[in-house]
């Protein structure tokens, strides 16, 4: 059985799934990540699924579990790099990846984590008719 490597970069754990995972491999990853979060004290997890050509309900459920477990261990999880065909298929399948934050690529995922760990001020989402102001 293949094992998915977990890399530590600063305050973040990076997982890049490169193989077509057996269900056991996915469950092993879930265990490994929980251990590594506790062992390293990292506050962010990025799971890169750019190389995955499908995400079925089992992988989807595992990703949701990882996000939930990380949350309990005080780490945020971002899933990055989902392919368009995979996203379209998930919508059709009816899988919404509840509780998972997503970003287009690793870089955006890092930004998202950084902002999440920032000052934590809630964003005033009043949106509408404000003038477009130049932001520094």
């Amino acid at each position: 059985m293949d094992r998915v490597p977990v890399l530590k970069i600063g305050d973040t754990l990076l997982v890049s799934i490169q193989v077509d995972m057996e269900d056991q491999t996915a469950l092993q990853l879930q265990d490994d990540l929980a251990e590594r979060i506790v062992a390293t004290g990292c506050h962010g997890v990025i799971i890169d699924i750019t190389a995955l050509d499908i995400v079925d309900s089992f992988v989807g459920r595992t990703l949701s579990s990882i996000a939930a477990i990380s949350k309990v261990l005080d780490a945020d999880t971002v899933v990055v790099g989902m392919r368009p065909a995979v996203a379209i298929t998930l919508v059709e399948l009816g899988l919404s990846l509840q509780g998972i934050r997503t970003a287009l690529n690793v870089e955006r995922g890092m930004e998202l984590l950084a902002r999440g760990r920032g000052d934590g001020l809630p964003l005033p989402f009043d949106s509408d008719e404000d003038e477009l102001t130049a932001t520094p």
Binding site: R115, G116, G118, L123, S127, L132, T135
Partner: peptide
């Protein structure tokens, strides 16, 4: 304008979009 504001606010204030 809306999309720019979301981006602008994000980069300016460094707060997360939840």
């Amino acid at each position: 304008r809306h999309a720019l504001r979301l981006q602008g606010i994000e980069t300016a204030r460094r707060t997360g979009r939840r």
